[in-house]
Amino acid sequence: MTAKKYDDKRDGRRAEKQLQSWFTSVPQADHLNQELTEALTTFLAGYGKSPSTACRISVTSDFYQSQNNRSADDHVLTHLLIAVASRLSPEERVRLRAAL
């Protein structure tokens, strides 16, 4: 949508519905929501403001999907690291911890 196509008679409800085709609301329990809420809070604090209690965090649907895929991959890698580390000698575990 361009600014020229935007009709002054439109209200927030119509815009909200249109934006849902491109954006995904991030659930409050999601770590991404917490991270972005903290960033928003810090940004607004610079102006003496704070986010509304009704604030919702939304990101592009493609970005949200990529974050979910990354989280799943990270989860698998973490399990793999734990499995490998459990087979290491105590000396090698110390070396691994130091490298991380």
Score class of each variant (00 low, 15 high):
Ser89Asn: 07
Val76Ala: 13
Pro90Ala: 06
Thr24Val: 10
Arg97Trp: 06
Ala83Glu: 12
Asn68Arg: 15
Lys4Phe: 13
Gln28Tyr: 08
Gly12Glu: 05
Ala29Val: 11
Lys4Ala: 15
Ser21Leu: 03
Met1Lys: 03
Ala72Pro: 03
Glu92Trp: 01
Arg10Met: 14
Ala72Lys: 09
Arg56Trp: 04
Ala83Ser: 15
His31Cys: 02
Leu81Ile: 08
Ala3Glu: 12
Asp30Phe: 09
Leu19Arg: 08
Val26Leu: 02
Arg13Trp: 06
Ser86His: 03
Val26Ile: 12
Gly12Trp: 06
Ser71Phe: 11
Leu96Lys: 05
Ala85Leu: 06
Glu38Gly: 03
Pro51Tyr: 00
Val59Arg: 01
Tyr6Met: 09
Asp30Trp: 00
Ile82Asn: 05
Val76Gly: 01
Asp74Lys: 00
Gln20Ala: 15
Val84Leu: 13
Phe43Cys: 07
Gly48Glu: 02
Thr60Phe: 09
Ser21Met: 04
Glu91Asn: 06
Pro27Met: 01
Gln18Lys: 08
Ser50Thr: 14
Val26Asn: 00
Leu81Pro: 01
Ser61Arg: 14
Ser50Ala: 15
Ala98Leu: 10
Thr53Ala: 13
Phe43Ser: 07
Tyr47Pro: 03
Thr60Tyr: 11
Ser58Phe: 03
Ala83Arg: 14
Glu38Tyr: 05
Ser52Trp: 05
Pro27Ser: 08
Arg70Pro: 01
Trp22Gly: 12
Thr37Ala: 13
Arg56Glu: 09
Glu38His: 06
Leu44Pro: 03
Glu91Tyr: 00
Leu100Asn: 09
Gln18Phe: 15
Asn68Leu: 15
Ser50Pro: 00
Asp73Tyr: 10
His75Phe: 13
Arg95Gln: 10
Arg87Val: 01
Glu38Trp: 02
Val94Gly: 04
Ser89His: 03
Arg95Pro: 04
Thr42Phe: 01
Lys5Ala: 15
Ser71Glu: 14
Gln34Ala: 07
Leu96Thr: 05
Ala45Asp: 08
Arg14Lys: 10
Ile57Gln: 02
Ala45Ser: 14
Pro51Glu: 00
Gln18Thr: 11
Leu81Gln: 08
Ala15Phe: 12
Ser50Lys: 14
Pro51Trp: 00
Glu35Cys: 14
Arg13Val: 04
Asp8Ile: 13
Thr24Phe: 02
Lys49His: 12
Glu91Asp: 12
Thr41Gln: 10
Ser86Phe: 01
Asp30Arg: 02
Leu36Cys: 02
Ser58Ile: 02
Gln67Trp: 05
Asp8His: 09
Ala15His: 10
Tyr47Asn: 10
Glu35Lys: 12
Lys9Cys: 10
Trp22Gln: 07
Thr78Ser: 11
Arg10Ala: 14
Glu92Ala: 10
Arg14Thr: 08
His79Leu: 03
His31Phe: 10
Lys5Gln: 15
Glu38Phe: 07
Ser21Arg: 08
Arg93Asp: 06
Gln28His: 09
Leu40Met: 11
Ile82Lys: 05
Asp30Thr: 09
Gly48Cys: 12
